[in-house]
Design a protein around this nucleic acid. Structure first.
Lengths: 340, 340
DNA sequence: TTGTATGCGTTATCAA
DNA sequence: TTGATAACGCATACAA
């Protein structure tokens, strides 16, 4: 029922080797034969068997290198699980995965880790790139020779095989729409963001603003506070925000620092009074959804981010196929108490 | 780096055949050798290569039969896409898929199709079982010899390899919570369900009721109308519901018939006034979310239902591995305008 | 009770 | 420019 190289060889009256050369454009075949074989192949609807292919390329012993900022950041726990799952899946292909875990976002440190991976002879790299020029340059450089995937955070200046993550603008819009639906008429919302220098955080604000301006004009944005993803800072700026804007009825956290922010909320006895929307599902966020303090959290598929990143690279290594689109946006997930 | 049968054979000083016999418990091996080889294998962390395995079992030419009620029911469009995707994925394994599309839910018709598939020599079957005794009996019967997967709708009386679908009770709870969050204080909701005989529909009502009774006691359920998933009936019962309960502020559709129901809503100029929550994302529902008539729709991953069902069966055929749990619940997806 | 040969579909390395 | 052969890891039929 299925058509193989041997079958085509038989029908064309040549050897399998010749068919292979034609089908994979290796040259050194008489043009007339080329055409004849190609015709027969397309006519029969030849589709190479990926399994058999993989079994052969297995000998190449590919190695994928990963840099993940998972130390001290629970968001990446699930990303790591996805990476491990993909790692298990592709081990049959003889592809190995080397993971470097790191804490925080230091460009020089990231640069060093990239060099370490290269020294280890990796054939591909996946990482959450820091938006700085030296990183962009480095990635541009190495992506000449090996495929690079950016996950979770994009770096538009650098050439790469793919970006795997969420559509920040869209998730901001969704947050805005949810906020619009759960708030009563006159509503003032305070925004607590990670960093105004982070592209993703800003896009989440943009999308949010876009929706409430166009569809929920009775919602006002009181202020935007920056917490640099730090809990203590978050506590302080949230406190200040609440003091400066007594009429606030809702909070919108675009990034981390939710624990600190909620501490300020609780101190002022505003839990269960303010509507609160956050991103991701860290343990702190989960428990506060359980308690009814947070109304919604919007998740960006951490597990799939990890899994997909590795899978995209292994697919590329094993069959040379790049993903259809450079930007692989994973659907967001709206979570509340009953589907947490 | 990776450990193979040959490597184990070499280290044990026996042939590959013997190792194979031990590792797959085929017997006919001296007990002492058994133990020795098993020890070496576990010590080295032997993991059989699924690719190579599949390449061999490929010769068996497995055939999976599918019965899908997709004719005239757009919900199953995406299920079909998932099935097609899985079909492409497993073609490398030499597993073929035969799909029988049918309109409506007639038990005798379903029975006939099962027999047709069996006559065609299928090695596995996936279907959306109708909850009637003759079907349950039939499935119990054939699941003695081949694996059976129920997708989208479960049939608890019948033995099967797995059920693939959503947790209806949980999605009902989510609907209830969403309703609670978007409605103002005194709220009366009308429920339009498919059939009170359908297990899934009832569970969606139960979950909904459970949440509003425990957490949103200011919401009242006015009435429950049955539309048998028929548009015209749906129009009529919704109209009646709205006439009988002038104070209704929200509608909850647990199943199909949304188009007819909304026609009644629009006729009475209640669009954009009533809060409306539905399930799935048929074209009609999509367009009404766009228009702002429907607030939320809760999707049950139709694509994944199709994909997973086929994948579970092929995994079982190729490696004899049953899924970890009989009930494979796919996460629900909350959709509104901005993430449709 | 054990070992050997053959094949799954592909690629790679020879030799012709 | 072509063809034959070995190999990837496993399973099976057959031989010893």
């Amino acid at each position: 029922l299925s058509v193989t190289i041997s079958k085509i060889a038989e029908l064309s009256g040549v050897s399998r080797g010749t068919v292979d050369r034609v089908l994979n454009n290796r040259g050194n075949v008489k043009p007339e034969l080329q055409e004849k074989i190609k015709n027969i192949a397309t006519e029969l609807g030849y589709k190479p068997n990926a399994l058999a292919k993989a079994l052969v390329t297995r000998k190449k012993k590919y190695l994928i290198g990963i840099i993940i900022n998972s130390v001290g950041n629970h968001f990446f726990d699930d990303v790591l699980l996805g990476i491990e799952a993909a790692k298990a899946d592709i081990s049959d292909y003889g592809i190995h995965v080397m993971i470097k875990k790191v804490k925080g976002y230091n460009a020089q440190k990231q640069l060093d880790l990239i060099d370490e991976l290269l020294a280890d002879g990796v054939n591909a790299i996946a990482l959450t790139p820091i938006n700085e020029d030296i990183i962009a340059q480095k990635l541009n450089d190495i992506s000449q020779s090996i495929p690079v995937v950016a996950f979770n955070n994009d770096i538009e200046q650098a050439h790469k095989l793919a970006f795997v993550g969420c559509d920040y603008y869209k998730s901001g819009k969704t947050a805005g729409e949810l906020m619009g639906k759960i708030t009563e008429d006159p509503c003032t919302v305070g925004i607590i963001t990670g960093s105004l220098k982070m592209l993703g955080h800003n896009k989440r604000i943009e999308g949010f603003r876009e929706i409430i301006e166009s569809e929920y004009s009775d919602i006002q944005i009181a202020d935007i506070a920056e917490n640099n993803d730090d809990e203590q800072t978050s506590y302080e700026v949230t406190q200040q925000l609440l003091i400066n804007n007594r009429d606030i009825t809702a909070l919108y956290f675009t990034a981390g620092g939710v624990e600190g922010g909620l501490r300020a909320v609780c101190e002022r006895n505003l839990a269960h009074k303010l509507k609160i929307i956050t991103f991701d599902a860290t343990p702190v966020i989960r428990s506060n959804i359980e308690k009814g303090v947070i109304d919604f959290t919007i998740c960006q598929r951490p597990y799939l981010q990890g899994y997909t990143s590795v899978k995209v690279l292994s697919d590329y290594l094993v069959s040379g196929i790049a993903p259809k689109t450079e930007n692989i946006y994973l659907d967001i997930e709206i979570k509340l108490k009953s589907n947490l």
